[in-house]
Design a protein around this nucleic acid. Structure first.
Lengths: 297, 297
DNA sequence: GTAAACGATAAGAATAATTCAGTCGCGTAA
DNA sequence: TTACGCGACTGAATTATTCTTATCGTTTAC
């Protein structure tokens, strides 16, 4: 670019450096090497005749001019990128993007394996699964830090769209050879045994307990823990019963001496929803990815 | 730009093609060759998987998608370009830009010669002087079709800034050897002669006539014409008097057998103003050019 | 009907960008 | 304090990309 017209691609680099506060991290985000970003920065510096970013300790701090410039042009840049993303012909075959998902514990195991298998034909594509506190989900989606989140049904504002991905019914797990495994599980048997309750919260009942109390009965909790996997290992070695979502139960039982049984009553199913930011939802890349997520049953 | 991230510089090309409706004209505006623009367009076409512009007769008509895309991204693009222009280090030595001026007849001769002389050190810089109807001036400034306009004092909205460039007093021209040239011109002599009136309008008095009628006198118009140069040629060969702005009179008299005389009364001076769009006025390139214009006395 | 204008295309040239290799400065830990 | 390591900068060389020159095929206007 001769003359004095700025190469607009440098703006994208500028924005990324600003956001990341580091050339190395910016380079990673841009799928470039660090010297490439450094060269781009020096071109920007020459164009603006300003250091733009100065190194302070281990982060690149923007100068006042850089700050003002970013404020001036950032809205325009996001608008342009939005427009480009919205209209460009989307070819999943050679997209190079990192999709970031908000997945909570169990869902990693149930979603990621079939997802990665489905994404096999697209090697340039990268996935990052992050554990996000529920109250931050909407914020992160809105900020573009997260492309999607998967969680149970939650109250969200209308800037966040969601869709039912799957209904996971609850099943009961017992160790192989457990006395109750011989016959169909009835309520009497279910209540006679003691139970493991898995919950991320420190106290309070699980969703299955709500239904049980509605039926006028109560079970006895022997162990409360945070992860289903740990709970299964316990179940395998004791006579405790574990009530949990079927999908994850299937996965775990493949490698464990565990029997899956139908629950003694119609327990509520766990509704797993997919969440995304409404405004970004029309981007072809995200539409495509949403289809992929929905396609894994 | 591998992957599927669009080269943002293509957006500028896209915008220019859209505006010009022609690849050749867009190439000229971008200081590129026609094939270069053609290649850029084909890259855009591949990216959007859409023809974007189809040739109909001798103009490139945007497809619906192109139209929608432009609407989506144009505001962002102008904002970015504004931000870039506002903050970038401005080096007049190697700027490559076409400044377009709205100049009306006379002003071309008085402004352009000293301006071009002053701009000699900047060979990459181009000037386009256009004759714009007065009522379109503000629109064209606002649309960026015109960087500056020079005209007499006009009523403008506050989106247009203006500044007094020079006050041009009115002088009287007579042929060399004219009887009246022997002495100082008094009102009696002025009124005794017959006159040429130069006006772009088809009828009505000139500004000097307003002042004369305020003084209670009236002159006799023999010839009404549109250009001062033609008027001077007539004055040179007749005994007619011509009242006109001094600056232009000086220029013409250099090559003509004409004597410049002080007017017989204090005639109003012509206030020449420089006009520009307020919002664009802060761009370094325009600030610089404004200084150049003001510097030529 | 003919000439001029315009966009598309091919191939070569020039330019620009990336990468690689190496230096320097700074913060952190021993 | 010293040594180590991380991160940014620089320069040279390679690689890629874009631009240009030249030419063709259409279309349009006189």
């Amino acid at each position: 670019m001769a003359g004095n017209r700025l190469d607009l691609n440098l703006l994208h680099v500028f924005d990324t450096i600003y956001r990341e506060g580091s050339l190395t991290r910016a380079a990673k985000a841009l799928h470039l090497t660090q010297p490439a970003v450094s060269h781009s920065l020096s071109r920007l510096r020459e164009h603006f005749d300003d250091p733009l970013f100065t190194r302070q300790g281990n982060q690149m701090v923007p100068t006042p001019l850089a700050r003002r410039f970013l404020e001036s042009m950032k809205p325009g840049l996001t608008q342009i990128q939005g427009a480009v993303n919205q209209f460009h012909a989307f070819d999943p075959a050679n997209q190079r993007k990192t999709y970031s998902l908000g997945l909570r514990d169990v869902l990693e195991s149930t979603f990621l394996p079939p997802l990665m298998q489905r994404l096999n034909p697209y090697p340039e594509l990268e996935i990052a699964s992050k554990r996000i506190p529920r109250r931050d989900m909407e914020t992160q989606l809105a900020a573009g830090k997260l492309d999607f989140a998967v969680d149970v049904l939650l109250p969200v504002s209308n800037q966040t769209s969601h869709e039912l991905l799957r209904q996971d019914r609850l099943v009961v797990l017992v160790r192989e050879g457990h006395p109750l495994a011989a016959n169909t599980l009835d309520m009497e048997g279910y209540l006679s045994a003691r139970h493991v309750l898995v919950s991320s919260r420190a106290e309070g009942p699980g969703i299955e307990d709500f239904e049980l109390s509605r039926l006028g009965v109560q079970r006895s909790i022997r162990l409360r823990c945070q992860h289903y996997y740990a709970a299964c290992r316990v179940v395998e070695q004791t006579d405790l019963l574990l009530t949990m979502p079927e999908t994850y139960a299937q996965i775990i039982s493949e490698r464990a001496n565990i029997t899956i049984m139908n629950p003694p009553a119609d327990l509520p199913s766990v509704d797993v929803h997919l969440y995304w930011h409404t405004a970004y939802g029309q981007e072809p890349a995200l539409i495509w990815f949403r289809e992929q997520l929905k396609a894994i049953q």
